[in-house]
């Protein structure tokens, strides 16, 4: 299993944000994307997920099986927003995404237990604190299986304990042969990861 990006360039509103980005990630590898604000970290993740078009280059996913024919189908995308409905309970939100995304993995209560929200499934999502909301969104990564996790500032709003718990979850994912690409300012607590520093080209 490999995720390949070659000479990728992305633009926003007709203006090039980055170009010439390339990397190859194999099973169990993680890539941390860093760089100053506006250097195109989020844009890169959205380009990889196929949510934004790329102006040049190529992005491909070579899976071991036929389950994930395209890059988009192989990706979990955790963006700035949590993609949960405030009016529905945490349980209902997660159940929906589990049914909709397919490839079910952990059950809802197990996933909530993993992120330290055990027993809070019955609360409306809107009642949770910022950090708890983020943890519920992280639980979304666990309920259905995707080999590639695209994480955009995944730990924003998390406290230290949750940070450590999330780092362990990411390590488990990599150990199981998954791929992680994370855009962040904060150290993620992952060891032996590749890093990609955005914005250097523009700084020169």
């Amino acid at each position: 299993m490999r995720l390949i990006a070659e000479n990728l360039s992305g633009e926003r509103g007709g203006e090039a944000v980055f170009d010439g980005i390339g990397f190859v990630l194999a099973d169990g590898e993680a890539l941390v994307v860093t760089g100053p604000n506006g250097s195109g970290k989020s844009t890169l993740l959205r380009v990889i997920a196929g949510l934004l078009p790329h102006s040049h280059g190529r992005i491909a996913f070579e899976g071991d099986s036929e389950d994930f024919p395209t890059v988009a189908s192989a990706c979990h995308y955790l963006g700035h927003q949590n993609a949960m409905k405030a009016a529905l309970t945490v349980q209902e939100n997660l159940q929906f995404w589990r049914d909709f995304s397919g490839n079910g993995r952990l059950g809802i209560s197990d996933a909530l237990e993993e992120v330290g929200l055990g027993g809070l499934g019955h609360l409306p999502f809107g009642y949770l604190s910022t950090g708890q909301k983020r943890r519920a969104a992280i639980a979304k990564l666990l309920i259905s299986h995707r080999p590639v996790w695209l994480l955009d500032e995944p730990t924003s709003g998390l406290d230290k304990a949750s940070d450590a718990r999330f780092a362990a979850l990411m390590q488990d994912h990599c150990a199981a042969g998954g791929i992680i690409i994370a855009a962040t300012h904060l150290p993620l607590g992952l060891e032996g990861v590749k890093t990609l520093e955005m914005g250097r080209v523009h700084a020169l």
Binding site: A49, G50, L51, P69, T70, A72, S73, C75, Y77, G79, H80, Q81, N82, A83, M84, K85, A86, W97, F100, S101, G102
Partner: peptide, 16 residues
């Protein structure tokens, strides 16, 4: 769109 669900609906376009 506001809560980010739309991104995931589009991302799952290969399945649905």
């Amino acid at each position: 769109r506001e809560d980010g669900s739309l991104d995931l609906l589009v991302l799952n376009a290969d399945r649905h």
